[in-house]
Design a binder for these strands. Structure first.
Lengths: 109, 109
DNA sequence: TTATGATATTCGGATGAACGAATACTCGAA
DNA sequence: TTCGAGTATTCGTTCATCCGAATATCATAA
């Protein structure tokens, strides 16, 4: 029974849990999963003001969830680690299963 | 390229991301992974006031991450879905790998 | 039914993000 | 070196959530 040090719990919280605990940032991660994008394109895609996207990207970059590459005046953002998608998709499946237990269905057919 | 509806993003955020975005709740989930526990025992284990633990458990219960069973006056809490541990462990590994990229190591040896 | 251990809830204050708006910075072309 | 497109930052406000303290509720034994 491994007791996880509180320092590691805090790192986990600050760097990952906290980072994905914001709907807009989840949207950003899914968008970048399709393809790397620059800030303006991302802002247009998510119909969100550019400073808002830029702030969220800064948070994701500080947590090392995305990396950047310059392309002239533009900055291309891409996912650092595809496992973040595995995590989000697992959560979605858990959510579907939990809703099913309550006989509620997403996208019923 | 599946575009995820904003409603599902919000459900994901409210029910799962938000729920694990708190160090004490992560500790609780790991503790319950070892074995089901009642509130008082959990409070003692995590050296945290009982009302604090109770409030966090209420949040986890509302999100269906834990379930309860009565045992006399006590209430036993247990994990609903072991996949939450898979998620947390994957995050820990991502964190380790990210730190390694910066030549920082947890538990060096 | 009353007392006790166990759990849940409420209140108030404090803290932490998020946002809109405005603006500052950066890069490269001319 | 100046301009414009692209990106980042700052400020002030608002809103959500956490906690400690106190207390209420619940279940069972006597």
């Amino acid at each position: 029974m491994p007791v996880i040090p509180i320092e590691e719990i805090n790192l986990l919280h600050n760097n990952l849990c906290q980072a994905i605990s914001e709907p807009k940032r989840i949207q950003i991660l899914y968008a970048l999963a399709e393809q790397p994008l620059n800030v303006t394109t991302l802002a247009a895609l998510l119909e969100t003001p550019q400073p808002t996207i830029s702030r969220h990207l800064a948070i994701l970059r500080q947590r090392a969830l995305v990396t950047t590459e310059r392309d002239g005046a533009a900055v291309i953002y891409r996912l650092t680690d595809p496992r973040i998608l595995t995590i989000l998709d697992t959560m979605r499946q858990m959510l579907r299963d939990a809703l099913e237990r309550q006989s509620i269905t997403l996208n019923p057919e």
